[in-house]
């Protein structure tokens, strides 16, 4: 028990130190959000997590996910139309579904898609809040039904708030930019990353998940922005370098 509490404290420290470290330098929003979903899964015992942000037309789009497999991101994207995430985004308040089996009348398509693929049983969506409005949402998926303890909900919301702060902070670093442009740039960078995953998956016979890990590992090991590496993989000849680099140490 004590050991578990101790290790969670260690994790928390590592997460916030890691995030704070990111926020002081010139960084990539997607890289920061990618770290954040990783920490969310570890800290809140979730099986998967993802972040969706609203574009200028207020449509939700996936920017970060702990699982880069196509079918999983499709499932996340489906939430742009229907599901706990879009409800959370519209209301600006957390939406918890302790058992999705009981939510099939509320979100028939979303629940059916979940049943078809991997059997997640509970979902918690936490808003990225800014001035009383939501700019996106953090989604936590669990394979087991049940509520998230209130301490975990509070921690999840703190992580979602860190995501918002990270987005605002990037704006402060690139002086004169406003939120709209940043989100648009971040969403376009996500498209670049998807294209780069395709290039690496093809050349290295990798899954999309493995391709993303290579991309991220290379960026971190070389202290480069994720979107810069992704662009060079698609446009120039960096793909071979990324594939030849030793897989990054697990972090």
């Amino acid at each position: 028990m004590n050991e578990a509490a101790g290790s969670r404290e260690q994790l928390l420290i590592r997460a916030f130190v890691g995030l704070a470290d990111t926020l002081v330098d010139d960084y990539d929003i997607i890289d920061m959000l990618d770290r954040l979903v990783g920490y969310s899964v570890e800290l809140l015992d979730a099986d998967s997590a993802g972040i969706l942000l609203a574009d200028a037309q207020r449509n939700l789009r996936v920017v970060a996910s702990t699982n880069e497999q196509t079918e999983w991101t499709e499932l996340l994207q489906l939430q742009a139309d229907e599901g706990p995430c879009v409800d959370c985004f519209r209301s600006g308040a957390p939406v918890s579904v302790d058992d999705l089996a009981e939510a099939s009348t509320r979100w028939p398509r979303f629940v059916a898609a979940l049943a078809d693929r991997e059997s997640y049983r509970s979902v918690h969506a936490l808003p990225l809040r800014l001035r009383g409005e939501a700019i996106g949402a953090l989604n936590l998926f669990h394979r087991t039904p049940g509520p998230l303890p209130s301490a975990d909900l509070a921690l999840g919301q703190a992580l979602a708030d860190v995501a918002t702060i990270g987005i605002l902070q990037e704006r402060a670093i690139h002086r004169g930019e406003v939120l709209n442009e940043q989100l648009q740039t971040a969403l376009n960078n996500r498209v670049i990353i998807e294209q780069a995953k395709g290039v690496l998956a093809q050349l290295g016979s990798l899954s999309m998940d493995q391709a993303f890990n290579r991309l991220r590992g290379y960026a971190r090991d070389h202290n480069l922005r994720l979107s810069t590496v992704a662009r060079q993989v698609v446009e120039a000849d960096l793909a071979a370098d990324v594939l030849e680099a030793l897989p990054a140490a697990k972090r």
Binding site: Q195, V199, M208
Partner: peptide, 10 residues
């Protein structure tokens, strides 16, 4: 997007 990247490489 992913397919575009794969065809770039192909």
């Amino acid at each position: 997007h992913q397919a575009t990247g794969m065809v770039v490489a192909q």
